[in-house]
Simulated scan of single mutants.
Amino acid sequence: MRNSSVRNNGDDGLAVWTSNVNGAPAGVNNTFSSNTIENNWRAAGIAFFGGSGHKADRNVIVDCVGGSGLRMNTVFPGYHFQNNTGITFSDTTILRCGTSQDLYNGERGAIDLEASNDSIKNVTFTNIDIVDAQRDGIQFGYGGGFSNIVFNSVTINGTGRDGITTSRFSGPHLGAAIFTYTGNGSATFNNLQTSNIAYAGTNYVQSGFNLTFN
């Protein structure tokens, strides 16, 4: 999917949900490039729910007021990321995305990674600009585990723009740069730059989750 405009969706703007019905093979090597996604009122701008080799690059995601700009999860049936050898997100701007109250009364980061049923692994984010996140900038959740999650040259300028502190997943807090409500996993950040972070501690991280900053 290239050079397209997606507006006012009531679910993910662009998504890969790889089915295993009737023995279908896992979806692999899908690309979302140079698209604009605006005004989603539910779910995310771009989402990958399983498979391997997917790429999302040079996208602009604006005002996903009911969910995240980019998301991955292992909630839905079908193939997850057991055989993922590498998924990449790059050169993308996420403006005014995320929420403190999605349709299930949970907060979602501008980037939201949710390992509920299986692990999320082998994912790289490069040259991502998060601007004015409504709640948290980057969010990790549930206990399925995270491994080889790498962020290169990510900027987070502005979090907690909605001013809400209540949380379904943790103690009350304003929007953090990085928020984890799981202790199972790790992520590496190379050249992370943050500014205008609402949460006084910058990152709200559950014990056991390992963040490495270079």
Results as ranks from 00 to 15, higher is better:
119 S>V: 01
213 F>I: 14
10 G>T: 12
1 M>A: 15
15 A>H: 05
186 S>Q: 10
4 S>Q: 07
175 G>E: 08
163 G>T: 07
99 T>G: 03
48 F>T: 03
49 F>M: 11
72 M>P: 08
23 G>H: 07
205 V>K: 04
99 T>M: 07
162 D>N: 15
208 G>R: 00
33 S>I: 08
67 G>W: 00
16 V>G: 09
129 D>Y: 09
195 S>A: 15
2 R>I: 12
161 R>Y: 14
170 S>M: 02
141 G>P: 08
191 N>W: 09
87 I>S: 13
139 Q>W: 09
85 T>E: 10
65 V>M: 00
207 S>R: 06
183 G>V: 10
138 I>S: 04
173 H>T: 00
77 P>A: 09
87 I>P: 13
37 I>F: 10
212 T>M: 03
50 G>P: 13
156 I>P: 10
169 F>T: 06
27 G>I: 15
156 I>R: 12
168 R>Y: 11
5 S>T: 15
87 I>G: 14
145 G>T: 12
10 G>E: 09
80 H>E: 00
68 S>Q: 02
133 A>W: 06
93 T>R: 14
45 G>C: 05
80 H>P: 05
193 Q>A: 14
19 S>T: 14
166 T>D: 04
194 T>M: 11
127 N>L: 08
47 A>Q: 11
96 R>F: 14
201 G>T: 07
121 K>E: 04
53 G>H: 09
108 R>H: 08
106 G>F: 05
214 N>Y: 11
170 S>G: 13
78 G>S: 05
189 F>M: 12
156 I>H: 13
95 L>R: 07
163 G>W: 06
93 T>Q: 13
28 V>N: 13
64 C>Q: 10
91 D>E: 13
83 N>I: 04
112 D>V: 04
17 W>F: 09
23 G>E: 07
12 D>C: 11
148 N>T: 06
153 S>E: 09
108 R>A: 07
25 P>E: 01
187 A>R: 11
137 G>E: 00
177 A>D: 10
31 T>F: 02
48 F>Y: 00
52 S>G: 11
207 S>Q: 15
170 S>K: 05
16 V>P: 14
114 E>V: 03
161 R>D: 15
154 V>A: 12
47 A>V: 06
136 D>C: 14
145 G>L: 11
195 S>Y: 08
186 S>H: 09
69 G>T: 05
139 Q>P: 03
27 G>P: 05
140 F>Q: 01
93 T>A: 13
140 F>E: 07
165 T>L: 04
191 N>E: 13
71 R>D: 03
176 A>V: 04
169 F>G: 05
20 N>Q: 10
98 G>W: 06
156 I>N: 09
167 S>K: 14
27 G>K: 11
212 T>I: 03
12 D>N: 15
198 A>W: 02
203 N>H: 09
54 H>S: 01
136 D>P: 04
109 G>M: 03
9 N>T: 05
94 I>P: 02
24 A>L: 07
65 V>T: 03
202 T>W: 01
14 L>R: 10
182 T>E: 01
